[in-house]
Design a protein around this nucleic acid. Structure first.
Ligand SMILES: [Zn+2]
Ligand SMILES: [Zn+2]
Ligand SMILES: [Zn+2]
Ligand SMILES: [Zn+2]
Lengths: 171, 171
DNA sequence: AGAGAAAATGTGATAAGGTAACATTGCTGT
DNA sequence: ACAGCAATGTTACCTTATCACATTTTCTCT
């Protein structure tokens, strides 16, 4: 059979225990590469911000990132974090998760993909799912209203496979 | 004039010039009916909040709604608006538009639908598009990750048919 | 009708998220 | 070296959202 190369990390890492050290390092490397190819500058704050986002598969608020950056000797005012995060988002190295008012590292930097997020309400993990079908269905729906889509937000809130067993016992 | 009984308002009103007076009145009526059937109380503040949202096909911030409510003699503190809006959202009479941090009246109250929003970045109009295909595609994508979807946010930002001609001349 | 419980509202305070504006630093090219 | 521009530091401020608690209204049951 055709052996899958390391081109689809998200499919392998979403809600599955894995070597996250390597996962993060690899993604960071790919992000750096993507930035270089794109001709944008990966400065220290920006890189550090991305590293922070990559530590876990969850979304972090700007102020949470800011605290971490400040602790590392960078500025401690909101624009420091917002600017770094804005840079990462604009260059496809991170995503904004609107449901959480937070940011998450992109797991497929440079791939020009349409992100769909799966957000576990129990453990807070966020996975990026490939979903071209969702996009095309959305474009179809928009087309029926003669609407021109420029950017789309698709986010699902629910329970990941690890949390689905035993999460609703609370109620 | 009892003409529209089993119509699909959203499909007819989205980005199309129409009798909005009747559109709003009809939707309000259907919302009241839905609330009654559901056994929840449509109090004065709640109804007024919905009326305010129904005035235009766009999303309004909570504070904007609050100002209007205060002007009508209701309380002028944030919880007044947030509570009314929360009620409307929880009972399917309004939706939260996350991309705008705002709220929009639901155009098909009581219909138990999965809302997909088309947001025009030029005129600010917001349309609710029916998109079962988008939902099922999203559920499929989630299923591939063994993720259980509970709630989903699908929002598209772009240009409505009325704004698409002549909007980008600015740049 | 009247007591008690539950739901809804009023209000003050504060947390959390986000931006504008301007000074300063540092890189880039000539 | 020096002009020009990108990036950063910093101050101040704005918007959005929630908490906590007192008061009123409405519901429920006797
Ligand atoms: Zn990982
Ligand atoms: Zn989980
Ligand atoms: Zn209308
Ligand atoms: Zn428009």
């Amino acid at each position: 059979m055709v052996k899958q190369r390391d081109t689809k990390p998200s499919a392998k890492t979403a809600f599955v225990t894995h070597d996250h050290e390597g996962c993060a390092a690899g993604t960071l490397h790919r992000a750096q590469e993507a930035a270089r190819e794109k001709g944008v500058r990966m400065t220290p704050v920006r890189q550090r911000a991305l590293e922070i986002l990559l530590e876990e598969h969850r979304a972090m608020g700007a102020y949470e990132v800011l605290d971490r950056l400040a602790a590392d000797g960078f500025g401690n005012q909101p624009p420091v974090a917002y600017r770094a995060l804005e840079f990462l988002v604009e260059n496809g190295l991170a995503h904004r998760v609107r449901r959480l008012n937070a940011f998450a590292a992109c797991m497929r930097p440079g791939e020009d993909h349409a992100p769909v997020f799966l957000i576990c309400r129990a453990c807070g993990e966020v996975a990026e799912a490939g979903a071209d079908e969702v996009r095309s269905a959305l474009l179809d729906a928009a087309a029926r209203h003669n609407f021109t889509v420029e950017r789309a937000t698709v986010e699902a809130l629910g329970l990941c496979p690890r949390c689905v067993d035993g999460a609703e016992v609370v109620a």
